[in-house]
Simulated assay, not measured.
Amino acid sequence: MTAVVLRGSPGTPRWPDPRATWQRSSRSGPFAGAGCLAPRASARRSGPSPAPRAPVGTSRLRAESHGTANAYERKHMNKAELVSAIAKRADVPASTVDSVLAGLQEELVDAITRGEKVAVSGLITVERTQRSARTGRNPQTGESIDIPAANTVKVTAGSNLKKAASSVPV
C-alpha cells in the first residue's frame, strides 16, 4: 500500500482534511475498488482540529517591549528599565536614580528589621507582620506537620496605585 496525502483548500467542505493521510483501499463498501482512496485509520479525526501550538521555549505570556498589553502579553520592567525611565522623567542622571533606589532598598530592609512600618502616601506601605504557628499537611504522604511561627513582609498598594490599576480595562 502506498500512502498519499491529499491537500485541499481550507474551509471548503468538498476537500478532505489537509492533515489526513490517505491510503489505497481494497475493502468493500464506499471506498471499494482499486483506485479509490480511504482515510488511514490513524489519520481519522473526530471533532474540531486542535489549536495551533506555540513554538518550544515560548509562552503566551511574553515579556517584550513596554506599551499596551493585550490578553496574550504580560509586560515586566526590570530595575535598569525603571532607573532609565525615572532618570528620563526627572531629567537627572541614571547614576543618581540608581543611588536613590539603592538607598531606598537599604532603608526598607533596615526598617523591616527594626519592625517599623514604612508608608509612602498614595504609593505603597511596607510592614513586618507575624504569621502564627499552625499545623500543615504533607501533600504527598498526608502526614501532619507543625509549621513554626514566622515573620513576613506585607506590602500594600496606595491609593494612586489602586486607581491606576482600576483604570486599565480588563
Results as ranks from 00 to 15, higher is better:
T156N: 11
H76V: 15
A34Q: 10
H76P: 06
V4Y: 10
S99E: 05
G33M: 03
T141Q: 08
E106G: 14
D110S: 14
D91N: 14
L108Y: 03
G115Y: 02
P50A: 03
G11Y: 00
E73K: 10
V56I: 08
P52W: 02
P13Q: 03
P30A: 13
A102N: 08
D98N: 13
D91I: 10
V4L: 01
I147K: 04
T12C: 09
S26D: 15
R60W: 10
G122R: 05
T68L: 12
I145C: 02
A63F: 11
Q105W: 08
S121C: 11
P48E: 09
G11C: 00
S49W: 05
G115P: 04
V155T: 13
R24A: 08
V120S: 06
V109G: 05
R40E: 07
V109S: 10
P52C: 05
S166C: 09
Q105T: 15
L6F: 12
S167P: 01
A102G: 07
V100I: 14
Y72Q: 12
R44Q: 15
R44H: 10
Y72R: 15
T113L: 13
V109Q: 06
A51M: 12
R134V: 08
E106P: 05
M1I: 11
G158M: 06
S95F: 02
M77V: 09
A119H: 07
T152C: 11
A43Y: 03
A32H: 08
S25F: 01
S167H: 04
E143P: 00
T125V: 02
A20F: 01
I145R: 03
T96C: 14
A20W: 00
A85Y: 06
I86C: 04
E143I: 05
K162I: 09
A111D: 08
R134H: 12
R128E: 04
D110R: 15
T141Y: 03
E64H: 12
W22L: 11
G67Y: 05
N160P: 06
P139F: 01
P30G: 15
G122D: 07
G47H: 03
S25M: 01
P55M: 13
P148M: 03
V170D: 12
G136A: 12
A20H: 00
K154G: 01
R89V: 12
R114K: 15
T96Y: 08
Q140G: 06
P30E: 12
A69V: 08
P139M: 04
C36T: 15
R44K: 15
A87E: 04
T96S: 14
A71E: 15
R89M: 09
E73L: 09
R40G: 04
A34K: 11
T125M: 01
Q130H: 09
R14K: 13
P16E: 00
I112C: 11
A63Q: 08
D146S: 14
G35A: 09
V56F: 05
F31P: 01
T141S: 06
G57D: 01
S144Q: 12
S65E: 14
P55T: 14
T141V: 08
A90F: 07
S144K: 05
A43C: 06
T113P: 03
I112S: 09
V100C: 10
